[in-house]
Design a protein around this nucleic acid. Structure first.
Lengths: 345, 345
DNA sequence: CTGAAAGCGCTTACAG
DNA sequence: CTGAAAGCGCTTACAG
């Protein structure tokens, strides 16, 4: 790259001080005479001056950069949030750098370190399991951050999320109202609070409706072996004939895997098995029985997250954390249509 | 945020010069005595020293940052590439900042400016239409960049892409071999070369197989009104009865819209209409007749793109641009199954 | 209204 | 083997 033109070049070119140039280019009112200001602006344009934000950052201690950490940026749930965050950040002059932790503690730490070394002004984090210590370290360093989607019961922090318990409870109750009584759930094999809440909502909805939860109904799959483990777990429950009449998928990606399995086993939705999922996916519309799902407003999540982050940067004092609970909506479709024949139990 | 500990703090703490600390922390061999090195390393650890990469960047002129510009990071095609790029960049110690231009010239320029001001070392760009001047400006400034997915015939630049003409040609020929003769195509209403190539491949495949291309077969939709325009265009061709027996979708997102329309019109795939698309989507597997598609290796694209970018940074001389053509594979499935009955024309 | 100077946190020749 | 010094490109009190 060729030598770039700096404020110094403009100053020399005009025979003035760099301070003057800096003032003009930063629109510090009143400090400079109109003619001089005009001359400086013109010279800057002629020389194609481009401010070096790195230098400014070193001086100001602010990089106007937000770090976004998610499990995997290629997961549509996160990439859609990333887009909202990008737009919202840009509106305030911020740029976003991102990192995927693959639900892995070490990767999470590495990304965090890299972002802190790069002096991001704040972090937006969908935290992985067991990363509480990393978040606590951030708090000790007074690094502003906002949790999105995930959270820990023992960490008080800015957070934007939904009421996972309620959303799951309502979804399962909807299944019950449509005539299902043996309701299975596919969840990640994790202790993460948002998943625990969803499981809690599921179980409580069963209990409150007089249905005895069977341990075998809760199928667990690990993030890194989701395909095999979802397949195995579901087969045990659904072959040779479905032992349950509904499946509740704890996330988008679990639903994608789960429905693939249902297709492979050739089970009819919704007659043999009703299906409900968290979050959206194009795929849900393409299935012969469009999937009923819980819609979170990614827009709200992204926007509130950036807002909280910018507020934390501005106050800089360790203010009391704010929690934003975003609304959800159950989008009811074919996959949970009422049973048309008598319940078989 | 609390005051951060700098190299100076370590130096003072130990009563040595900052130069020494810098050398040790950067592993400049032989310059420092083993004991001193050890003492410095220990002090750095104790004080939780964290190098300020902004300061280093100002000094070195390198930020170890790559800028990724795509149409929309929430588009799975791009978010998947973003993930590959992230991993590949990290492997070499680079971070990625991203921006979505929404196929818009002004936004593209704004993102470019923001990234250049932030001193990215190189750019990875899936360029929008009419942004040739912006790319030429980059070349004049000797800013290293690599085009991905898209390209311009009048711009010589590093580029990673597929042979769009060939891929489209082969896809259409496959449709013909399975017995289709009236083949429509849905494409973006753009002059972008990759789309033009795909259209060219489509038309030539028809011609070479003795099929007269009908102008009405080529349906165009604009990026910003894809839903309405795809719907209108397809309806004209498919209602009251299909005037064509196959549809070739120029991209992933066009296919999603197009298939939605096919579902709404209740047209049977593949019997009434065969369907083929570019790129993958979960949704393609969930459709009752899984969609045949052209698979590009996003892995290859991402990896080569980063490699070329890093090479350009290293040589820094305006070397002759390199073009990498990535292989594609036609994944044949139900949506293009052979016609089982006699062709009706 | 304008300039000289210090400093943000590093790196790196240059001396010794 | 170690230190003093300059400099990356900016901003911002401090003088005048």
């Amino acid at each position: 790259m060729e030598r770039k033109v700096s404020i110094k070049d403009i100053a020399r070119h005009l025979g003035v001080s760099t301070a003057l140039v800096s003032y003009v280019l930063n629109n510090k009112a009143g400090r400079v005479s109109a003619e001089m200001a005009e001359k400086i602006r013109q010279a800057a344009a002629e020389l194609h001056y481009r401010p070096n934000l790195i230098a400014r950052s070193l001086q100001s201690g602010k990089t106007n950069t937000l770090g976004l950490i998610v499990a995997d940026i290629s997961n549509p749930f996160f990439s859609q949030i990333a887009r909202i965050i990008e737009d919202e950040a840009k509106r305030s002059g911020y740029t976003v750098i991102f990192g995927s932790n693959d639900e892995n503690v070490e990767k999470s730490q590495a990304i965090l370190d890299a972002m802190l070394n790069r002096q991001v002004d704040a972090l937006l984090i969908a935290p992985a399991e067991f990363t509480e210590p990393q978040l606590k370290a951030l708090q000790e360093k007074h690094v502003p951050f906002v949790l999105i989607d995930r959270y820990f019961s023992d960490i008080q922090a800015n957070c934007v999320r939904i009421d996972n318990y309620r959303a799951a409870y309502d979804a399962v109750e909807h299944l019950i109202k449509t005539g299902r009584s043996r309701i299975a759930m596919l969840a990640y094999d994790t202790g993460m609070q948002h998943i625990a809440d969803r499981i809690g909502g599921y179980k409580d909805a069963l209990r409150d409706n007089g249905i005895d939860f069977q341990a075998s109904w809760l199928v667990r799959a690990s993030y890194h072996h989701i395909e095999e483990e979802a397949a195995t777990g579901m087969q045990q429950l659904l072959l040779p004939a479905p032992a349950v009449d509904a499946f509740f998928f704890a996330t988008n990606s679990l639903a994608i895997q789960g429905i693939r399995q249902i297709m492979r086993m050739n089970i009819k939705v919704p007659d043999e098995l009703a299906v409900i999922s968290f979050d959206e996916a194009d795929a849900f519309d393409f299935f012969y029985a469009p999937i009923t799902y819980i819609r979170q407003s990614l827009d709200d999540i992204g926007r509130h997250a950036v807002r909280l982050a910018l507020e934390s940067i501005a106050t800089s004092q360790p203010a009391t954390p704010k929690e934003v609970i975003v609304d959800v909506r159950l989008i009811i479709r074919e996959s949970t249509k009422n049973k048309t024949y008598a319940t078989d139990q």
